[in-house]
């Protein structure tokens, strides 16, 4: 298992539970030591991040955020996220887009300084490894 500094957990936000499962599997396949937490809506995601019981040992370093969700969308999540206290924020937010054909979403993701990147579904193990490599420091 590979370990990275400040990367204890990954939060998956997607209303489609199968997508969450696929992404969980993809992360497992990278052999990176992280706790994966999957939620299916924006409210649960915010509750999880701000939960007082959330131990630092599982606090996510990465959020993979779906944009198209019923009710509150990924963009609504970002609006609420910007209001959060610093201690609840995470290092890396990546938006997950369903198709490569929505330039509006891509442009919007580029404008948000908290969103470091956008990826297209499904998440591939090698893509996740690259992301971690880029933003986190490896521990021996």
């Amino acid at each position: 298992m590979k370990k990275y500094k400040d990367l204890h957990g990954v939060l998956l936000v997607d209303d489609d539970k199968f997508t969450n499962l696929i992404h969980t599997k993809a992360i497992e396949r990278t052999g990176i030591d992280v706790q994966v937490k999957a939620v299916s809506n924006v409210k649960d995601a915010l509750d999880f991040l701000t939960s007082q019981q959330l131990a630092d040992s599982v606090r996510p370093g990465i959020i993979l955020l779906d944009i198209n969700m019923p009710g509150l969308s990924g963009w609504d999540f970002m609006t609420a996220y910007h209001q959060l206290e610093e201690k609840f924020k995470v290092k890396v937010i990546v938006t997950m887009l369903t198709t490569s054909l929505n330039p509006d979403d891509e442009n919007r993701a580029k404008l948000d300084n908290q969103i470091v990147s956008f990826l297209h579904k499904p998440l591939r193990p090698e893509i996740f490894s690259q992301l971690v490599e880029e933003y986190f420091e490896k521990e021996d």
Binding site: D16, F18, T19, T98, T99, N102, K121, P122
Partner: peptide
């Protein structure tokens, strides 16, 4: 077409792969 039709198809592909 872009989202609601793509997602189930994605699942189909993903789970066959899995």
């Amino acid at each position: 077409a872009s989202h609601d039709l793509q997602e189930p198809l994605l699942n189909l592909t993903n789970f066959v792969e899995l």
